[in-house]
């Protein structure tokens, strides 16, 4: 299989995902096309299926039926681990930093999976944290950082392998309004400066409306 240069960066075809032997349908036939460098917000009520869609886009889970394609290639035909390691950066609501590692070490963790040499890992992690404004917090452990700082470390980690797509699941959900605005400014800047694709799942209307493209999901279907 080879990449199709004319294909969308991410494409979703008739995507369905059900749980509990089909009794719960999280997604009921979603079609979606995402071009490179798109900035998309996905919103919806709790349980609408927006996080499930993000997980399927990120190859964290497999659909019950339908397909997710990356540059024309179905995800199930390309290595999911390589796809996640090299093409994606994940940002989670709960940050999900590893508590025993310092900030700079947390940023290096993804690079352990991609064969980046030790010196480069360290230099790149430091540069990313400096870019996030955390040059004075490199050697702090997560529990020594504020919530906003933790999320910025998580963003640096998501950028470690220089991915083409950033997937953010409620990235401001655990932040106050000041930190929330700071994190969103960072994400928008990164998306613009690096030409990355940014897909944000959020339930906050102002964040959703600020995105150039806004998709609403309701009961497992795209509403608009």
């Amino acid at each position: 299989m080879t990449e199709n240069p004319t294909a969308p960066q991410l494409e979703v075809r008739s995507l369905r995902k059900s749980y509990d032997d089909g009794r719960i349908e999280a997604l009921r036939g979603v079609d979606l096309s995402i071009e490179a460098a798109d900035y998309i917000a996905i919103s919806g009520a709790s349980g609408s299926g927006k996080s499930t869609l993000l997980q399927l886009l990120g190859g964290l889970d497999v659909p019950t039926s339908g397909q997710v394609l990356f540059k024309g290639q179905p995800l199930d035909q390309i290595g999911l681990d390589d796809y996640r390691a090299r093409q994606l950066g994940f940002i989670f609501q709960a940050f999900h930093l590893i508590p025993t590692l310092r900030a700079i070490e947390n940023v290096q963790v993804p690079m352990l999976a991609t064969g980046v040499d030790a010196a480069t890992r360290s230099q790149r992690a430091e540069a990313l944290l400096v870019e996030m404004g955390l040059q004075h917090r490199l050697n702090q452990f997560p529990n020594e950082l504020s919530a906003g700082e933790r999320q910025r470390v998580a963003i640096a980690r998501a950028l470690a392998n220089n991915p083409s797509i950033l997937l953010a699941d409620e990235p401001t959900g655990n932040l106050d309004s000041v930190n929330s605005a700071h994190v969103m400014d960072l994400l928008r800047g990164i998306q613009k400066d690096r030409g990355m694709t940014l897909v944000i799942v959020t339930h906050e209307n102002d964040i959703a409306h600020a995105a150039p493209r806004h998709i609403r999901i309701r009961d497992g279907r795209i509403e608009s």
Binding site: L60, D82, Y83, P110, R157
Partner: peptide, 16 residues
């Protein structure tokens, strides 16, 4: 368990 989930999410292979 959750940390292992994070490692898998950021591209660590099962073997790693």
């Amino acid at each position: 368990t959750r940390e292992i989930g994070i490692l898998r999410a950021i591209g660590w292979k099962a073997g790693r």
